[in-house]
Amino acid sequence: MTNGPLTLMQQTSALRQAIRNQEHTGPTSGLATGAMQGNVVILPKEYADEFLMFCHLNPVPCPLIGVSAVGDYRMPMLGEDIDMRTDIPEYYVYRNGEEAERCYDISSLWQDDMVAFVLGCSFSFENALSQVGLTPRNIEEDVNVSMFESSIPTKPAGRFYGNTVVTMRPYTPKDAIRAIQVTTRFPKAHGAPLHFGDPSSIGINDLAIPDFGDPVSVKEGEVPVFWACGVTPQLAIKNAKLPICITHAPGKMLVTDLLDADLAVF
């Protein structure tokens, strides 16, 4: 029995345990506030170097915060009890570029040659936005963040190529400028927005129909603000047509023991 509130590390450990037990299978935005969250890509060693190069060439949508040893499902640099086979609320399994399965535990699919990559996530700057009175709409409405495939191309690396996926959060123009200032301090969580204003100029036709996640309301006088998103590799994975690749479900992240502040640049 604990005395007083749980520490952040106790919260992250408890949340991962709930995810591991499949007691929580939903989005992780707004949970374990202050903890760094990450996008996940797991693939065979044969393709790891090419994917690593893809991340290096595209550091805004694919900011690396952790890479496992070959065959090791642990991620000690991000949390001492992390198990990459069980600690994501939902996994997507791709075979030959097509989504083949969704599941909550990949223990039976884990291979001795697999490498896990964890990429920074915009959920890590949502706490900073909330602290200055700019709480993202997806948190206010208790839904997953809106995600769209844009027309902004990534730089290809071998088999991996595709357009950039973006998240969208609406703000008034004044608040959008403040949001840009805040998120610029988080380059490992995608940093400053890629675009704000007219969605069609980056290939987005309807904000009410996101490609991933949920729609959020855009109020009168607000403009959509678009940040790069760690779902971008999922488009590249489809194009690469690997025999097997496993990712997180959009919006359902790995919650680490590191602090959002560890990503900040002052």
Score class of each variant (00 low, 15 high):
A18M: 10
I42K: 05
P215E: 09
S68M: 05
A128K: 03
I65P: 08
I19C: 03
P59E: 05
I106W: 05
F123I: 10
T7F: 04
P27E: 00
T184R: 15
I139L: 15
V216R: 03
D83C: 08
V165C: 13
P59Q: 11
S150C: 07
Q10T: 06
F125H: 11
M1D: 11
L78K: 06
N3I: 01
P76I: 04
F226G: 11
P153I: 07
A192D: 07
D112T: 14
V70G: 00
T86D: 00
A100C: 04
A236C: 01
G251E: 04
D105E: 13
T256E: 14
I19G: 05
N96I: 05
E90A: 09
P27I: 00
P243A: 13
K188H: 13
R85M: 06
K252I: 01
P173N: 07
K188A: 12
L31I: 02
M75Q: 12
G162V: 15
T247S: 10
K155F: 11
V70Q: 07
S217D: 01
I204T: 01
T184L: 15
S29I: 00
L64M: 14
R185E: 11
V118R: 10
I209P: 03
D260L: 04
R16I: 01
Q17T: 02
N39H: 06
A208G: 04
L129N: 04
I209M: 08
N58H: 12
P243R: 04
N163T: 02
I209K: 15
G79C: 14
C245W: 01
R85V: 05
L194N: 02
T247C: 12
R95A: 08
P233Q: 09
Q22P: 00
I180A: 15
V165K: 02
F266A: 14
A236K: 01
V225K: 09
C121D: 12
D260P: 07
T164N: 11
M75N: 10
R16G: 03
V132Y: 05
A261T: 08
P61M: 06
S146P: 15
Y161T: 04
P156Q: 07
